[in-house]
Amino acid sequence: MIEMYGVSKVYPGQVVALDDINLRIRGGEFVFLVGPSGAGKSTFVRLVYGEERPTRGLVLVDGRNVGRLRPREIPYLRRRLGVVFQDFKLLNDRTVFENVAFALRVTGASGREIRRRVPAVLSLVGLEDRARARPLELSGGEQQRVSLARAIVTGPSAVLADEPTGNLDPDTSWDIVNLLLRINRAGTTVVMATHAKAIVDRLRMRVVAIENGRIIRDEPRGSYS
């Protein structure tokens, strides 16, 4: 599903974010990407959804070379991936419903399809009652659930979550992680970059540890450190 071979990313000014990464994530896997801030986790995520191109090496998503995609092909890559960020990235001047519907409209979905799928996803994340609320009327955990709903409403084959619990308290964080687990059990690949040690240690899923841009550990049932 997601593969990297000899991938390096050097930002202008000789800042090495990733250094010779080799990794295969199969369809349906749940992977924690752990490591201190600035280790390269966000760069990893950006390379997968095509916001950055690798300086060296090969990034494959569903067998397609992301680094070689033409700019106008990138939107279609992103429609097969759902992305969740630490800061939610919601549009505060639109309702919860509209925020989720946004991702569908972009694909040219019909009004009927939107009215069918958005409520379904909202009830999956437990926000069916808040469809008409605006993001700033919601708690942080609820906002993150909206952004999660937006990420999965198009039925992506993988969800990339970059520090999705970074702004949330422990209880709320577990809500989000449990949702990600549910999404994963339905067959969606999930990659979650995090430094929430408690969560990683408790779940015992595959853990890829990155430090200074290199993979220092890759264990099938790993812990945070």
């Binding site: 939107p75 279609y76 992103r78 429609r79 992305v83 990235k89 946004f102 991702a103 972009v106």
Partner: peptide, 16 residues
């Protein structure tokens, strides 16, 4: 610009 960025992230084409 936030809106434009989010549109890009969810896979909107430039024309769209």
């Amino acid at each position: 610009r936030a809106e434009v960025r989010i549109m890009k992230l969810v896979g909107a084409t430039d024309g769209f």
